Simulated scan of single mutants.
Amino acid sequence: MALFRKAPAHVDEDNPYWMSFSDVMSALLIIFILASVVLIVQLMEIEEELQQKQLEFEQEILELQQAEAVRRTIIHEAAELLQQRGIRVSVSENDTVLSIPNEILGFDTGADQIGLQYRATALEIGEVLSEVIRKENRIDYLDTIFVEGHTDNRPLPGRRGNWGLSADRAVSLWLLWDELLSPEHKLNELKNKDQQLLFSVSGYGPTRPVIENQVTDDDFRANRRIDIRFTIRRPTSEEYKRVLDVHIEGAQ
């Protein structure tokens, strides 16, 4: 009687488990490769975005530095020109404010009108400001110029009080400039780069004294003053984008 032996089967044919495991491993490898590619692309996009933000930040810093330099030039040039005319004003430590002392404007206690004998000097200040602001393209770096009125700390009776008095002092100087400055020195027509009027007035009452402990008449007089505060303009996001596009095109 003949005996027949069945030929041994290959492991892969008899054990489908190994085939499915191999397929799974291949699929996992493909998924890993795809995930790695996606991650690399995302990292590249993040790096590009960070580089763009860095460029925008650097451009913003540059623009602000230029604006601050222009403001500093305007204030110190105005102070120097006024000094040459015998008009002594002071510049704040941070180069943002041109301060006009009361002895130049002559505000009496509780009064908001510039004395008649001081009006010519007040007009000279307006003329010098107009000249230095109009030079080159300086006005493009400015946002607002505030004519700020101040009082001493003695309470003023009535509803207006020190706040109203300080604002009225600023308004009186502005109206004098508006009415009597020559056409080539007019300040009321000046506009910033956004086509908004450049000058504004405000009043601080006794809240920003130059002398804290006011005792003598000289102390009170020192706090009755007008400050000209220059604020600089920040470029808009669209301007940053235009500058950034130019920078990128130049690098390509």
Rank of each mutant, 00 (worst) to 15 (best):
residue 86 G to C: 02
residue 87 I to Y: 05
residue 67 A to G: 09
residue 66 Q to E: 07
residue 58 E to Y: 03
residue 83 Q to N: 10
residue 64 L to A: 01
residue 57 F to K: 15
residue 87 I to M: 04
residue 86 G to Q: 03
residue 80 E to H: 11
residue 76 H to Y: 09
residue 78 A to P: 11
residue 75 I to R: 07
residue 62 L to E: 12
residue 75 I to K: 05
residue 75 I to W: 03
residue 85 R to S: 11
residue 74 I to L: 08
residue 72 R to M: 09
residue 58 E to C: 01
residue 66 Q to H: 12
residue 77 E to F: 00
residue 73 T to L: 06
residue 58 E to N: 15
residue 86 G to D: 01
residue 87 I to Q: 07
residue 83 Q to G: 06
residue 80 E to S: 12
residue 59 Q to H: 15
residue 64 L to C: 02
residue 67 A to N: 11
residue 71 R to I: 01
residue 72 R to H: 13
residue 63 E to G: 07
residue 65 Q to E: 03
residue 59 Q to Y: 05
residue 71 R to G: 03
residue 87 I to S: 02
residue 79 A to R: 15
residue 66 Q to Y: 12
residue 85 R to D: 04
residue 60 E to K: 15
residue 77 E to I: 00
residue 78 A to R: 11
residue 73 T to N: 10
residue 67 A to F: 07
residue 86 G to N: 02
residue 79 A to T: 13
residue 68 E to N: 12
residue 64 L to R: 11
residue 88 R to C: 09
residue 73 T to F: 07
residue 62 L to R: 14
residue 74 I to M: 04
residue 86 G to T: 07
residue 87 I to H: 04
residue 63 E to S: 14
residue 87 I to K: 08
residue 78 A to V: 12
residue 68 E to I: 11
residue 78 A to C: 13
residue 69 A to C: 02
residue 71 R to K: 13
residue 66 Q to W: 09
residue 58 E to D: 06
residue 76 H to T: 15
residue 62 L to I: 08
residue 78 A to M: 13
residue 75 I to Y: 06
residue 72 R to E: 09
residue 72 R to W: 06
residue 68 E to P: 02
residue 71 R to W: 09
residue 71 R to P: 06
residue 74 I to D: 00
residue 76 H to R: 15
residue 72 R to S: 15
residue 88 R to I: 14
residue 88 R to E: 05
residue 78 A to I: 09
residue 62 L to P: 02
residue 61 I to Q: 14
residue 67 A to W: 07
residue 63 E to K: 14
residue 63 E to V: 02
residue 60 E to G: 15
residue 70 V to N: 01
residue 85 R to Y: 03
residue 58 E to A: 06
residue 57 F to S: 10
residue 84 Q to V: 03
residue 72 R to Y: 05
residue 58 E to R: 13
residue 76 H to I: 08
residue 77 E to C: 00
residue 87 I to T: 08
residue 60 E to W: 08
residue 76 H to K: 14
residue 83 Q to T: 14
residue 59 Q to C: 10
residue 78 A to Q: 04
residue 60 E to L: 15
residue 62 L to N: 14
residue 66 Q to P: 05
residue 58 E to T: 12
residue 63 E to H: 14
residue 58 E to M: 09
residue 80 E to G: 00
residue 88 R to L: 14
residue 60 E to F: 10
residue 78 A to E: 04
residue 81 L to W: 05
residue 61 I to Y: 03
residue 61 I to E: 10
residue 62 L to C: 10
residue 73 T to I: 08
residue 73 T to Y: 07
residue 72 R to I: 01
residue 81 L to F: 06
residue 77 E to D: 07
residue 58 E to S: 11
residue 75 I to C: 04
residue 72 R to F: 03
residue 84 Q to D: 03
residue 78 A to T: 11
residue 70 V to D: 00
residue 87 I to C: 01
residue 80 E to A: 12
residue 82 L to M: 06
residue 67 A to C: 07
residue 64 L to F: 01
residue 64 L to V: 03
residue 81 L to H: 09
residue 70 V to F: 00
residue 74 I to V: 15
residue 65 Q to C: 04
residue 63 E to Y: 08
residue 76 H to G: 05
residue 75 I to H: 06
residue 75 I to Q: 01
